[in-house]
């Protein structure tokens, strides 16, 4: 109905984003990341040894994966504060499972954790969409529920242990390629999946929903369902992080504490707008690497680890303020309400 004359192949190319357009969103955080890496190389000339670099990547993997999941929620207009508690719960549950049923195949435990993360995310999503509880509160509540459940179950001292084969993903290398940690492989898979997802129709629609959910709904987007999906994927990402953290550090009732704020800081550092609609997943993951690099640098400089959270607080406020200044200036220009004239 809209004309079916053969389309010149070039016509649509004009409207394709320029090949490097994506780079613009990522550029500031990449500059930051490079600066931090250079600083690391200056402070510690051995940092770029392949082995140590891979160790850095492995250490970063949980946070980068959490940031990718957190990005999905933030870009669609929400927050997920429950991911740290999911990590803790995942570590503790795995240990308890091996305690209850020694000899359980490790893949079964992995599957249980992934399903559990999915379930937590779906509940977060349903509470914040169907029941219209602001996601900040919904996921804060979920965080408390999970923390309380873990504490109740373990009495503060988790029992059990994580067998060697289960911990492999977190701390061992790929057989036959001893230089390559499994965690880096998992990280690469998650990273590629996240990028592909954000290029898909669903991913683009998710960003559009975060930008203007009224317009998206009127364009046929199932807004609630899409937001639930974002929370669900964030929950799964948190479960993946739990598997890596468990392998890396072993059983602890504090395994995931603080990760939710680190993930949000990372996403914000990547230039992703709180409230949704703007920012790239690559930038969010680069933000996570930057944060990890910063922590490493501070440690190398002998700054007390106790200051980490203070530094993180300053970063979050600064990053949001910088994003907010330019945004509010534009907002006054473009967000004039359309009123019937005269």
């Amino acid at each position: 109905m809209t004309g079916t004359e053969p389309a010149s192949g070039a016509a649509h190319l004009r409207w394709r984003p320029a090949p490097l357009a994506g780079l613009r969103a990522v550029a500031p955080v990449l500059v930051l990341l490079v600066a931090l890496l250079v600083a690391l190389a200056v402070v510690d000339p051995g940092f770029f040894d392949p082995e140590r670099l891979l160790a850095f990547l492995r250490r970063s993997a949980p946070l980068v994966i959490l940031a990718a999941g957190q990005y999905l929620v933030i870009v669609s207009g929400g927050f997920d504060l429950s991911v740290g508690a999911v990590v803790t719960a995942g570590v503790v549950v795995a240990a308890e499972l091996f305690n209850l049923a020694p000899g359980l195949p490790w893949l079964v435990v992995v599957a249980v954790l992934l399903l559990g993360g999915l379930l937590v995310g779906v509940v977060n999503g349903i509470v914040s969409t169907v029941f219209a509880v602001p996601s900040f509160i919904a996921t804060l509540g979920m965080m408390l529920v999970l923390q309380g459940a873990v504490f109740f179950w373990t009495q503060g001292a988790p029992r059990g242990y994580l067998p060697e084969d289960y911990r492999m993903l977190g701390r061992s290398a790929v057989p036959g390629a001893e230089w390559l940690p499994w965690a880096v492989v998992v990280l690469a898979v998650v990273g590629v999946a996240a990028v592909l997802f954000m290029r898909s129709d669903t991913g683009r629609t998710l960003v559009a929903t975060g930008d203007n959910d009224v317009a998206a709904g009127l364009a046929g987007v199932r807004v609630a369902r899409l937001r639930i999906l974002a929370f669900a994927l964030s929950g799964v990402a948190a479960a993946v992080a739990a598997i890596l953290v468990g392998g890396f550090t072993g059983v602890s009732a504090q395994a995931g504490s603080g990760y939710e704020f680190q993930a949000i800081t990372a996403v914000v550092l990547g230039g992703v707008a709180l409230g949704g609609g703007r920012g790239s997943v690559v930038a969010a993951m680069a933000g996570a690497f930057s944060l990890q690099a910063l922590f490493t640098l501070l440690t190398l400089l002998g700054v007390s680890g106790a200051l980490e959270s203070a530094v993180q607080g300053v970063i979050v406020i600064t990053a949001v303020a910088v994003g907010g200044i330019s945004w509010s200036r534009r907002a006054t220009r473009t967000h004039q309400p359309v009123r019937e004239s005269v």
């Binding site: 129709d201 683009r204 629609t205 930008d211 317009a215």
Partner: peptide, 21 residues
């Protein structure tokens, strides 16, 4: 602006929104 467009997305993302959704 309030109901028709996702203002912070590029032209093509807006033009494809209905199809994608």
């Amino acid at each position: 602006k309030g109901q028709g467009l996702v203002l912070r997305q590029p032209v093509l993302d807006n033009a494809l929104l209905v199809l994608r959704a």
